[in-house]
Amino acid sequence: MIETRELTKHFKDVRAVDGINLTVARGELVAILGPNGAGKSTTLRMLTTLIPPTSGSAEVAGFDVVRHQREVRLRIGYIGQGNGAGHSQRGRDELISQGRAYGMGVRAARTRADELIESLGLAEVANRTVSTLSGGQRRRLDIAMGLIHAPELLFLDEPSTGLDPQNRANLQEHILRLRAEHGTTIVLTTHYLDEADSMAERVIVIDHGRIIADDTPRQLKAKHVGDRVILGFAGPDGAAEAARASGGEQRGAQVRITSDDGPRLAARLAALGPDSIEVVRPTLDDVFLTLTGRSLREDASAPESELVEA
């Protein structure tokens, strides 16, 4: 569905995208993850024909993004960072215009708009001026606009930025449903780790305009970080003994051991008789930290953990 060769974009002296080779097969759901300014959006803008690459090439939905812009545009849907609907327009009118823009007849566009209004729960607000809608409602309208022509490939640029957790969950549900029902190929950029983790079966990590990792979230974590099993004891003596027996690292009354399969190791280590066993699964942020030495999180919060009572 997507095939790029050394795709590169320079803005004056800045290499925003620096030689990306990317292949996405039909039906995949891919998340492009990276910090702000990593080159995610620039990559997406090249793939959606908004800007031409400085060098390299990209084929999207079977057509070259520079030589056959129109063919590409007919086949893709794009939901950008902003609001697709004009603020002085009404939602339903914009949906119909959008359908017309893709060559649908008035009647077909109207029917399709009705369908999307229904399925995205916009019935009550579709006839209101867009500027009066809430952020979440506008975002759902954006999605409806991106889907009007039932594209085989959908791009979403930071779809959930600025949404509250409830609207974010709602949006993710829509995206997953779309894929389940229509087999749409989906490429989205995000800097929300949990979003990439829970939705995508393939995560591409971009930093400084380059792909630095490309795998399933599970594989990325196993390959680059691994699980940590933490055994807790009543005092340092017990911990020292357990550290010797398990080959782990002692820290006070705790012993830490790294493993590809934390839960299995934890079950085995229960025999050492600890007071508590904690299995810490890595997050994509840990992966990012290992790969780049920097954290993606703006606010460093506690890692996800599973507490297993012994």
Binding site: L74, I76, G80, G82, G84, A101
Partner: peptide, 20 residues
């Protein structure tokens, strides 16, 4: 100024990606 506003909100970009 209408277009300027649509360039800021994102609806101009949305239209640029359509086959129009």
């Amino acid at each position: 100024s209408n277009l300027l506003y649509e360039m800021q909100t994102g609806s101009h970009e949305r239209m640029l990606v359509t086959p129009l």
